[in-house]
């Protein structure tokens, strides 16, 4: 069966969803990810959904689940890159994913995780403000 790959980067796990999500695949991701968090002791999980064209109530529930389960396993999950059309549709659907952390892109998601996990930052990657 097809599975979504989970990459490990130091203390973090990185998942990029690039296929059409279906229910079994989403369930498998939930299982794999929680297993990997427990096994690696990862403190942060980043899920990039910028390629996802829709998130329906099932996928929404899985995202919510992963976020909640990872919290219990002492890891933070950040969902990054949700498309505007997907966000509007989710809200209309009645799914607001309370408690799920979000960021605009992988870089901002990573920065958020570092702040949450409090690992010393390497270098200065904050945007320099210019007026």
């Amino acid at each position: 069966m097809e599975r979504i790959p989970i990459l490990r980067m130091g203390d973090y796990l990185l998942v990029t969803i690039q296929v059409d999500m279906h229910d079994r695949l989403a369930m498998a991701l939930q299982d794999d990810l929680t297993a990997r968090i427990a096994k690696t002791g990862a403190q942060g999980v980043l899920i990039d959904i910028s390629s996802l064209e829709i998130v329906d109530s099932f996928i929404g529930r899985i995202i919510s689940n992963i976020s909640g389960m990872s919290r219990i396993l002492d890891a933070h999950t950040v969902i990054v890159g949700m498309q505007p059309a997907v966000a509007i549709t989710l809200v209309e659907l009645g799914l607001t994913l309370p408690g799920v952390l979000t960021a605009l892109d992988v870089e901002k998601g990573m920065a958020l995780l570092r702040r949450l996990v409090d690992v010393p930052e390497e270098g200065d990657d904050e945007d320099n403000a210019e007026f």
Binding site: M82, A87, I88, V91, T96, L97, T102, L104, D105
Partner: peptide, 12 residues
């Protein structure tokens, strides 16, 4: 309200 919620889902 919906706009604000959708923006939050995107990370803003």
């Amino acid at each position: 309200l919906k706009t604000v919620t959708a923006a939050r889902l995107m990370g803003a």
